[in-house]
Design a protein around this nucleic acid. Structure first.
Lengths: 202, 202
DNA sequence: GTCTATAGCCAGATAGAC
DNA sequence: GTCTATCTGGCTATAGAC
């Protein structure tokens, strides 16, 4: 009774994720996605109508993977230190397993400002106010250094995400080979946790 | 006696920078560049032969703007603290004036790994060893906390560059409008300097 | 649901006049 | 050096058979 084959649809999505995430919307080719999925172009259009819709499905699924855990961590009933630790230890390995994901998201948001605007008015990102509120309260009572919570959240995402986004550049700047850079990533959870906690410690 | 008109060449470069940096190599259109430069497609090819070569000229000029000052700062005869301060105060305003530059560089390096490889074997990035060596020495004599210099350089670039690269995402996550995010950028030099110095202070 | 074949368009590149 | 006109290939998308 089903009008779409679940396996085919899944194969298409997997292929599309791979191609779109490594080449971007503009650089991706429907033919290449079809090849990777083991089908032909016509079937691709049968399932997703056109390139834009396939792209949006991939993009939405990409952000859908990133968002829920952010939300869970920042809104949990945890201390500041616990949240920082949880965020860093969860996200660094996750992004390490999905290396193209953050570049893809960032690239498309920057290249298609109109799409970005529409997307965010339809799909809200997780809220981080609770965590930022905790930071304000803690600095009020002198538990941590006086710090702008918005700046600190920026720092948090920066030190976690940037090494993956800027990998080709930083690999070269630090004169590492792939193995050497992977080693650096391995040590990053501990380094980043320590450095973030130190930066707000009194 | 000249075979190329300097003004035309400059007009093309300016237009190409703008289009390539905002849409990327794959998304850019030669027609759009020609229009913006006030000429036609044929002349574009007369000056730069093909799209790839025009792109490479733009890319090289982009990295050429970023590299020299990094080199100057990190190899200067300055203390660790002075280098951090100089780097942050120079680069945040610079990138703020050239917002598309880092996304463009990062995006193209990630989307074209082969090109990236070739590019870096022909054009070396600035060296940061002197700075990293200073960090090692300073932690040996107990002047600063024990810190992996590679990790610290990663942090340095992360906190400086990421807010521009991840702007559309972070703007949304922090629930800012454009003005609010610009204000955050304004306060960033001071915040980042303090936070980096704190993170290595004993 | 899946395929082959092809329409139709658009973009990069060139020919050739001025 | 700059233009108009055009070729050529490639890519999205659809028509239509099975």
């Amino acid at each position: 009774m089903k009008s779409k084959d679940q396996n085919t649809e899944q194969a298409i999505m997997n292929a599309a994720v791979e191609i779109f995430q490594s080449k971007g919307m503009a650089g991706a080719r429907m033919q290449e996605i079809a090849d990777k999925a083991g089908i032909n172009k016509a079937l691709l259009h049968y399932y997703f109508r056109n390139k834009q819709m396939l792209f949006e499905a991939v993009f939405k699924s990409a952000l859908g993977q990133l968002a829920p855990e952010i939300s869970k961590i920042f809104n949990a009933d945890l201390s500041i230190e616990e949240k920082i630790t949880a965020f860093v230890s969860y996200y660094i390995p996750f992004v390490n397993q999905n290396r193209f994901l953050p570049v893809f998201v960032i690239q498309e948001l920057n290249n298609n400002p109109v799409f970005a605007e529409q997307f965010f008015s339809a799909n809200a990102l997780p809220k981080t106010e609770k965590f930022r509120y905790q930071l304000i309260e803690a600095s009020k009572i002198g538990e941590i250094r006086n710090v702008d919570p918005d700046q600190f959240v920026l720092d948090l995402f920066a030190v976690v995400v940037f090494p993956f986004v800027g990998r080709p550049l930083m690999k070269n700047l630090l004169q590492k080979d792939d193995q050497g850079f992977d080693d650096l990533i391995q040590g990053r959870i501990e380094h980043v946790t320590t450095m973030l906690l130190n930066s707000i410690k009194k």
